[in-house]
Design a binder for these strands. Structure first.
Lengths: 211, 211
DNA sequence: ATATTGTTTAACCGTATTGTTAATACAAAC
DNA sequence: GTTTGTATTAACAATACGGTTAAACAATAT
């Protein structure tokens, strides 16, 4: 029987993790403080250390979770089942965009914590580089088939993937900047993002099929 | 006559600024320490405060300089003189990419320091939002002319600009990540970047002219 | 020469922040 | 009910960091 104490522990742990996630994603490792995390979790900051020992430890838990999300979404991206190629592409771009929309701080977080200056965030290397080539190969095969039929252009899959990711994450990277400089369309965030999602799709399909 | 003291001052100032630039660009405001900056500049950290009073002050000097660079490059981007439209676009994308290549940490720096959490980096707002619409209008006019002639597609200039910026900054954002996960082509950095530059051009021209 | 002004150093201060520890509460196990 | 292991608290320790100060030092002006 899972006893009450265990449950309460789990709940405290979760509250800390939740608070840590928000703090780290918004402020990065350096900007975050364990005190603020503890405060937002509603516990003393000694508790945080009791459960996670060090700030770095806690951070790595969050980072790992986020990288796992990333891996999952990469996996999920391209297996929209029996649709024709063009629709599969469209759906993949769309769902990738929507995923980021639900996790708008994720791109900045990942980009930041893997930058050369920080010596954190190592150790999950392998996992992710097993999967990207898999996606690449699958897409490449599809492209080759379609281009043999004269439907699609002959393009390196890796370029298509990078094009799509570039276009899809960019709006979320610049949004704070646009808001800061008072760009007009930044106020209509939803419209702006919808517009950019459409544009992503148009660019990718245009690149593959010349419209 | 500019005296020796003055020169030495300027030189110390410059050394601090140089060191600060590197530190801030690599580690961001929170990750940077005035002590490390001073050390890398070869001065005591009291000197840093003597010349720049506060960390924030010094940071804003760097940020301002970088935003000025940004403004300059935006201005310079689209006035490639008497070339035909398609070549002007190609040149603009190319030179934008090359600029970032010379300042590979710039995109991350700008994106980061304008994110919601920090209340730094205000004050240069106006400057920059005077110029982007100017570029937008100029490009829009050109697009409209060409599309009237049936040469180019009818597209919102803002989307073209964002497409280009997305595609051009992305390689520099992911490069550290790719290196970290041991992606094969990250080793051949030059080839990778050349490839992505070509792809940017192809995507943009493809979008505007259907190849 | 001396006063003046600006530069540099070394030592120090205050505070924020990470991390520890010792004591206590508390639930379950025997 | 005593023991045992875990959860929680409050107080404290250690350090890193931004910033200050006072005094030494150098350059220039008068």
């Amino acid at each position: 029987m899972v006893n009450k104490t265990k449950n309460e522990n789990a709940s405290v742990e979760e509250r800390i993790l939740k608070a840590a996630e928000e703090e780290f994603l918004n402020k990065g490792f350096d900007g975050a403080t364990t005190e603020a995390i503890a405060r937002n979790a509603g516990v003393t900051h000694a508790m945080l250390h009791y459960y996670f020992r060090t700030k770095k430890n806690l951070f790595e838990k969050i980072l790992n979770a986020k990288v796992d999300m990333l891996i999952k979404v990469i996996f999920g991206t391209f297996k929209s089942s029996g649709l024709p190629f063009r629709e599969r592409i469209t759906e993949a771009v769309k769902s990738h965009f929507d995923f980021i929309r639900k996790n708008p701080e994720l791109p900045r977080f990942i980009i930041n914590e893997f930058n050369s200056g920080s010596r954190r965030g190592i150790l999950l290397d392998k996992k992710i580089w097993e999967i990207i080539p898999k996606l690449g190969e699958e897409l490449q095969k599809a492209i080759d088939e379609e281009s043999a039929k004269g439907v699609a252009n002959r393009i390196d899959a890796i370029n298509i993937i990078m094009d799509a990711v570039s276009l899809n994450i960019f709006p979320f990277l610049v949004l704070p900047f646009l808001k800061n400089i008072g760009a007009p369309f930044a106020e209509y965030e939803k419209d702006f993002l919808d517009m950019r999602r459409e544009e992503s799709i148009k660019v990718i399909t245009g690149r593959l099929f010349n419209r």
